[in-house]
Amino acid sequence: MKTENVGFDVDVPSTSVEPVVQSIAPPTENPINAALSKGISPKTLRIPAIDVEAPVQHLGTNNLGEMAVPDEIDEVSWFEPGYNPGQNGRAVIAGHVDGLEGPAIFWDLAELQPGDVIEVAGENDDLTFEIYKLESIPLALADVSEVFGYTSSPELVLITCSGTYNREWGTREERLVVYAKLIN
């Protein structure tokens, strides 16, 4: 039998060959990642070490393209366009440190220590994250990709204002960022 290939005649043998089918085991997955690959939609945030418990709002960006934050000082919000808690990547939850009325939900966030836990409850699943790093970053030097970026395992980031209040900017000059990894 002859067949045409890019203007050249090529001889193709007329014998047929049966394909060999092999059974290949699927790759082994981390059980946490397999069970929670899509993460959860957060309903409640708990931080036992500083006695915080709050419902979680689902917000995106404001009209300036910045992360939207809760209107009230006793509320927290998850950056919904980002990663879900339990999904590979950094899920971000924000809260205020203070307001005109005084201390806010994340007033004591700076007291947390590596090893403290953060619990996020969803509709059917609860996740526990362990804090591994805290840092206060000057607002002008904040690296958005570091805070909101992809990681190969599920992480949670809490963020609030810190440092001196700058009247010209209308905000504090730093951001306190708490990084935690999924442990359960």
Rank of each mutant, 00 (worst) to 15 (best):
T3R: 14
T3Y: 11
V6Y: 13
V6L: 14
V10Y: 08
V17M: 08
E18M: 12
E18F: 12
P19C: 05
V21K: 12
Q22D: 11
Q22Y: 06
A25M: 09
E29A: 13
N33M: 11
A34F: 11
L36A: 09
G39P: 00
G39T: 02
T44V: 04
R46A: 08
I47G: 08
P48E: 10
V52W: 02
Q57C: 06
Q57W: 04
G60N: 02
N63A: 15
N63D: 15
L64P: 11
E66P: 01
E66R: 04
A68C: 00
V69S: 12
E72V: 03
D74Y: 08
V76S: 02
V76T: 06
V76D: 07
S77N: 12
W78V: 06
F79C: 02
P85G: 10
P85C: 13
Q87E: 14
N88D: 12
G89R: 10
G89P: 05
V92I: 00
H96C: 01
H96Y: 05
D98M: 00
L100H: 14
G102N: 05
G102F: 01
P103K: 06
P103D: 14
F106G: 07
W107H: 15
D108N: 13
A110P: 04
E111K: 15
E111W: 10
L112V: 08
Q113L: 15
P114S: 09
G115M: 01
G115V: 00
E119S: 11
G122L: 04
N124P: 00
F129A: 04
F129I: 04
Y132K: 12
Y132C: 05
E135C: 00
P138N: 13
P138K: 10
A140G: 11
A140W: 09
L141F: 07
A142H: 02
V144Q: 13
Y150M: 07
S152W: 05
S152F: 04
P154V: 11
P154Y: 08
Y165D: 04
R167N: 15
E168D: 12
W169A: 15
T171H: 12
V178F: 03
K181H: 10
K181M: 05
